Amino acid sequence: MPELPEVETTRRGIAPHCQGQHITRVTVRNGRLRWPVPDDLAARLEGQIIKSVDRRAKYLFLHLEGGAVIVHLGMSGSLRVITDDTPPLTHDHIELELQSGVILRFNDPRRFGCWLWADSPESHPLIASLGPEPLSADFNGPMLFRLSRSKQSPVKSFIMDNHIVVGVGNIYANEALFKAGIHPKRKAGRISLDRYHRLAEAIAETLSAAILMGGTTLRDFVNSDGKPGYFAQSLLVYGRAGEPCKECGTALKEIRMNNRSTVYCPRCQR
Rank of each mutant, 00 (worst) to 15 (best):
H63V: 11
G242V: 06
V237L: 09
L64S: 05
S129G: 13
Y59F: 15
P132M: 08
R219Y: 14
S120M: 08
L79N: 08
L89E: 13
L235T: 03
D84V: 00
A232S: 14
W35N: 00
L73S: 09
G167H: 04
V168F: 02
R240T: 05
K246M: 11
M1G: 15
R110G: 12
V26A: 01
P184M: 06
K185G: 05
P87Q: 14
G74E: 09
A42T: 05
I103G: 06
Q233I: 06
K227E: 08
R105E: 08
R240Y: 03
T83H: 10
L45R: 02
V237P: 08
Q152L: 14
R190S: 15
S150I: 05
A15E: 15
P5Y: 10
A200E: 12
K179R: 15
F139Y: 14
V81T: 00
N223F: 02
D39T: 14
G47A: 00
R198D: 15
I127E: 13
K58A: 13
E175H: 09
P266A: 12
P134F: 03
I255P: 01
E65S: 12
G229Y: 08
V28W: 01
I70L: 14
M1C: 14
L116H: 03
W115Q: 02
Y59A: 15
P134W: 11
V102H: 01
L236S: 15
A68I: 00
I82Q: 01
P228Q: 10
V165F: 08
L45W: 03
T83S: 13
L235D: 04
